Simulated scan of single mutants.
Amino acid sequence: MGCVKLFENYLPKRPYHTDDLVSGLKINKKEKAKFARLVQPNGPTHRYWMVFDLDRSNAGMHWDDVGAPAPNLIARNPANGHAHLLYLLQTPIRTAIDGKTAPLRYAAAIEAALRNLLGADRGYSGLICKNPINSHWIVQEWESSPYTLDDLADYIDLTPEKAKEKPVEDYGLGRNCMLFDELRAWAYKAIRQGWPDYNQWLNACLDRAIGYNVNFSTPLDISEVKHTAKSVAKWTHRNFTRGTFDDYVARTHTSEIQAFRGSLNGKSKRLKGIDMLASGATVNQVSQELQVSHRTVYRWVKKQ
């Protein structure tokens, strides 16, 4: 199956689309939206394509000049040569926070490094792209097979271990990581202010998430923000209750917290870590005190 057909298959059920950005974006069923000049390639919960925007006359072959991997698809403007380069992922990255965070962070580091290698537009939001189904664009298929993250990482000398050392960037998938980290850190403490019911808490998380999102140089689409807010709200409301917190506080005093944690010999490190997070400790503090990696602490959070 060709990559253009795969592009069509992986389109969201109701993607954003338009023939003219001046007239604004519309939302329709895929069967109608797929014929537009510009269309949304990825939904709010899964990333099938990494898309890069090159505003240069030789965009169609620039990837080869800089030693980047061959795109699966290139959709090029016949008037000026500017193009969108599309890389298909063999395993889509789940951007909703109930997915695994390690692949998301690895993918974010790869995406940022490829953007730098290609010299792609940092301001490109990734929400919509030149539609390779539409005959308005000059479309080329260079690579027929989808890429694994490791395949792409080979071109930029980036291993999962090196990716963990790199700070998350305010670009592409990095925004999903940053939004989750900031929202979760706030939620662990804020939920204790009145113990709201779920609908109140969901609205509070959404308001906070929107506030964080507008500070990104290129904000995420609101649908992605809503998915992240719902994920954080659901987990914290289920796990951080007045009863569990009061029980924890009843057994500890601020000056005795360190001693109490050391006395929990019967508890696993994971449960100790959850207790610490519930009391307001950061991921970094939990990692240092329990001598575990940040990745392990994030995994404890996700499994609750």
Rank of each mutant, 00 (worst) to 15 (best):
Y124E: 05
N9A: 03
A109S: 15
P160S: 07
D121M: 05
D98I: 05
R76Q: 13
N203G: 04
Q140T: 10
T159G: 06
I156K: 03
F260T: 15
L202R: 10
E224I: 02
K267T: 06
K130Y: 09
I222N: 13
A278S: 06
A120N: 08
R208G: 04
L6K: 02
K26V: 07
D247P: 00
L271T: 10
L202P: 00
K30I: 11
V301W: 02
Q90D: 12
Q288M: 09
I191K: 04
T95L: 08
N134D: 01
V39T: 09
K226A: 11
I97K: 10
A83N: 09
V139I: 14
T101W: 01
P167F: 10
D55E: 13
P92N: 04
A233E: 00
K34M: 11
W142Y: 11
T241G: 13
S268Q: 01
K226R: 12
N131D: 03
K272Q: 07
F260V: 15
N239H: 11
S263L: 13
N239I: 05
R47M: 10
D181I: 02
R14Y: 06
V51F: 05
I138T: 01
R238N: 10
G99M: 08
P12W: 00
K34S: 14
Q200R: 13
L104V: 06
M178T: 07
Q40A: 05
T159Y: 09
A36P: 07
K189D: 08
R115N: 03
Y48K: 13
Y147T: 01
S231I: 03
K26N: 11
F260Y: 14
L25Q: 01
W142N: 09
A204I: 05
E224Q: 12
E111K: 06
V214T: 14
E224C: 02
D64S: 11
A250H: 12
L104E: 01
S293C: 09
G211T: 14
Y212V: 12
I222F: 06
N9G: 04
G280D: 09
L206R: 14
T218V: 12
R175H: 02
A79I: 04
E169F: 11
A75G: 04
M61E: 12
H237C: 07
A113I: 07
T101E: 06
K303V: 00
G123S: 09
V283F: 11
S125R: 07
